[in-house]
């Protein structure tokens, strides 16, 4: 069951930004774009330099204690009672849905629960807290894109329509949905290397479905999926380019 997420009681003045480890190393521009979008809405965005990873890779691999210690470092890095905005449904899902379980019976159980309750997926926050879908002004050229919904974003964080509301708010953008939009791309963290052939079959079908839309770009809210889909598109020599939603929105509306 997806988490039941409600907006903060009051419009926040400060938000934390959790960039995620994957974005940090591979997609920093996507991470920065999310911060810029928030900042342009008049919010002070705080990026704690002590943050690292949500702990999901170890957690999903069955190494709970290592996951917990890395997660604890995040509890330490985000001390204030501010919303924590995450440009990834997967990492957000780990922190909102699984932290309470990960810390069950631990000295930090209460702290983890409170932390979990402050976690928001970026596009959800942009729509439900900032109402950005009614404020976007598209300055870009005409383009056709397709959307890839990440599994954890949809099924753990309950984020399904929000990103598409943002994309549809762009006047020069045509969104062509693909029939396999909600099917897993085959990334699954260590799955991609533990079951490389099944993963390869899944991403092959995914890029086929994307290709059939004729879209110039495939936009998603999770860099794990984008790394997988983008890498496969690239290797197959397909013209469709992967892009994170935050980067896409910023580029359309602020020419970045």
């Amino acid at each position: 069951m997806p988490a039941h997420v409600t907006p903060p009681a009051e419009m926040p003045k400060d938000v934390y930004y959790f960039g995620t480890c994957l974005v940090d190393l591979f997609f920093p521009d996507a991470g920065l774009a999310g911060m810029e979008l928030l900042k342009r809405q008049g919010i002070r965005v705080v990026f704690p330099q002590d943050q690292s990873c949500c702990g999901q890779p170890a957690f999903n691999s069955g190494h709970r204690s290592e996951a917990r210690e890395v997660a604890r470092a995040q509890l330490d890095a985000f001390p204030e009672d501010w919303p924590i905005v995450v440009p990834s449904g997967s990492c957000a899902g780990m922190m909102r849905v699984h932290y309470p379980d990960l810390f069950q019976g631990d000295r930090d159980e209460e702290r983890a629960k409170a932390f979990a309750g402050r976690v928001y997926e970026l596009s959800w926050f942009l729509v439900h807290v900032l109402g950005l879908d009614t404020k976007l002004v598209d300055k870009g050229e005409k383009v056709t894109v397709t959307w890839h919904g990440s599994c954890h974003s949809m099924r753990e964080m309950g984020v399904v329509d929000e990103p598409k509301r943002l994309i549809r708010a762009l006047s020069n953008v045509t969104l062509v949905e693909n029939p396999r939009e909600k099917e897993c791309c085959g990334f699954g963290g260590t799955f991609a290397v533990r079951q490389p052939e099944v993963s390869a079959a899944m991403v092959a079908d995914k890029i086929d479905a994307i290709g059939q839309t004729g879209a110039a770009r495939v936009v998603s809210g999770d860099c794990g999926c984008l790394m997988n889909i983008g890498g496969a598109l690239d290797k197959a020599g397909k013209p469709t380019r992967p892009q994170h939603l935050a980067e896409f929105l910023l580029e359309r509306c602020h020419g970045r």
């Binding site: 940090d24 591979f26 920093p28 890498g231």
Partner: peptide, 17 residues
């Protein structure tokens, strides 16, 4: 085997921030 190698960015998000 079916994807190109992911590219490490020249600067991390920590640095950019």
């Amino acid at each position: 085997s079916v994807r190109t190698k992911p590219k490490f960015a020249a600067k991390t998000l920590h640095q950019l921030a």
